[in-house]
């Protein structure tokens, strides 16, 4: 470098620029492959539509002291909104059910609605061979029924018997709730309603026709109704010993 005039070497200079640009593009492409960045890129493309984000975690709080045994508003609402029917056959689906829980020692009995608990460490997500059972960024555990091969391993793995297998042909599906034979299904926390800014069908029905036992909201927002309720009164998660961190919590369960 010393003693030599810095003669402009046009082609060499251009080649260096080209190399730098190539390396830069390669590096950026590598980054873009990382899902997080590509999600942001998507968001910009969509004109600001962000989709599910990890800044939110949807949760449900159910106060069973308000649940009446005879009330099945949540079950009826879910089944009519999503289009499934349970007529008592062992092969019939049931996305949400009322479980009558009785303490044999004291006789205390409560009617507890049980559905998919949307665990943070969902075993169904872990065991699915194709990744069809997955957890969305905002904590909702879903089945991508396009990829589900119907092996039912997630049903073996779920501690809450949240999932059902569709054993026969279905017709007349609701346009917003596609479901079909040979795949596994379960409570979706009415994800398309949440994405449109509404609450799940069961929560709405409980508020309108039931006793208002269900609270829905963002667990990561300390100002939401559910966070405040959880902070004020003790609540429990079902099978808390399994440390799955479900998004659904209960108060008043025996």
């Amino acid at each position: 470098m010393t003693g030599r005039p810095a003669a402009p070497r046009d082609t060499g200079h251009l080649v260096d620029e080209g190399r730098r640009r190539f390396l830069g593009v390669a590096a950026v492409s590598a980054l873009v492959l990382a899902p997080g960045v590509s999600l942001l890129a998507y968001a910009e493309e969509q004109g600001g539509k962000q989709g599910a984000s990890a800044r939110t975690r949807w949760g449900l709080l159910i106060d069973t002291t308000k649940c009446k045994s005879s009330c099945t508003a949540c079950v009826t609402a879910c089944s009519s909104y999503n289009g499934w029917k349970n007529e008592g056959r062992p092969t019939d689906p049931q996305w949400i059910r009322k479980v009558q829980v009785t303490d044999p020692e004291t006789g205390l009995s409560r009617s507890v609605p049980v559905m998919c608990q949307h665990c943070a460490k969902a075993p169904c997500v872990e065991v699915c061979p194709t990744g069809a059972s997955f957890k969305r960024a905002d904590g909702i555990v879903l089945v991508d029924r396009h990829i589900c091969i119907g092996c039912r391993y997630c049903m073996m793995a779920c501690p809450y018997k949240a999932r059902s297998f569709v054993s026969e042909e279905i017709s007349g599906q609701k346009p917003w709730a596609p479901r079909g034979k040979g795949t596994v299904e379960g409570c979706t926390l009415c994800v398309e309603r949440i994405d449109a800014g509404q609450v799940p069908a069961c929560v709405q029905a409980c508020a309108r026709e039931g006793s208002g036992a269900m609270t829905f909201g963002d667990l990561k927002d300390p100002a939401s109704a559910i966070s405040r309720a959880l902070a004020e009164h003790p609540s429990l998660q079902l099978r808390a010993d399994l440390m799955l961190d479900p998004g659904v919590q209960y108060q008043g369960v025996p």
Binding site: L39, Y42, A43, Q46, K49, Q50, G51, A52, F134, R136, A137, D138, L142, D144, H146, V191, E192, D195, A196
Partner: peptide, 12 residues
């Protein structure tokens, strides 16, 4: 669209 709607909640 299928991937975005199901996995990312981007519904157009």
């Amino acid at each position: 669209v299928r991937y975005e709607a199901v996995h990312e909640g981007i519904r157009n």
